[in-house]
Simulated assay, not measured.
Amino acid sequence: MHAHEVIELLGLEPLAGEGGQWAQTWRDGHSSAIYFLLRPGDFSALHRLGGVELWHHYSGAAVEMLLLEPDGTLLRPLLGADLAAGERPVVVVGAGTWMAAGTTGDWSLVGTTMAPPFDEASFELGERAALVAEFPEAADDIERFTRKDAADG
């Protein structure tokens, strides 16, 4: 399949600010879940949430993730199906962790799940300059996984 076919079949729409294509698949008072598709040249921009988020790999290429944890730890997990290559089908992102993701191929279909459900008020999109100041060792990755904002000039 091609990315445009997956987008059409699942009814995915562009996700403003963060990037990627998405559709909510479940939401009740206890949890929420989405489909999320990434293509080359697009990415899930660095952002953080107030709750734990589980990322699941469904189809397509592996996803490279960047996690900047509140204690300063820097992680680069691969979300995918090739266990022998170090990929994992589920990645847990802790509350308050800056996260970003990009496909390693033509497209990647993943999902995310939160319990309690996603809360827009807890979503914070990262600002490049502030993140580089806090995590200088990840400056190249931060540059790659943020979009130019007004503070960057």
Rank of each mutant, 00 (worst) to 15 (best):
H30F: 13
G60R: 13
A81R: 13
F145M: 11
A115E: 04
E124Q: 14
G96Y: 04
E134I: 00
L79D: 07
A16M: 06
A85T: 06
E137F: 06
G17F: 05
E143V: 11
P89I: 08
A100N: 11
L66G: 08
G29I: 09
W26I: 03
D140S: 13
A151S: 14
S122P: 12
A23Y: 02
A95G: 15
P70F: 09
L131S: 02
A151E: 08
L49E: 07
H57R: 04
A23S: 13
Q21E: 09
D71F: 06
F43P: 00
G86S: 09
V132M: 14
A3N: 03
T112P: 07
H4W: 10
S44K: 01
E143P: 02
T25D: 12
L125A: 15
G80T: 02
D106Q: 14
A150L: 15
H57P: 14
E64M: 01
A23G: 15
E87Q: 15
P117T: 06
L79F: 07
L15I: 03
G94A: 15
D106R: 14
L109N: 04
V90F: 10
A33G: 14
P40V: 11
R88H: 12
T104R: 14
F135K: 07
E137T: 07
F145V: 02
G86C: 05
R128N: 03
V93G: 01
D140W: 05
D149A: 14
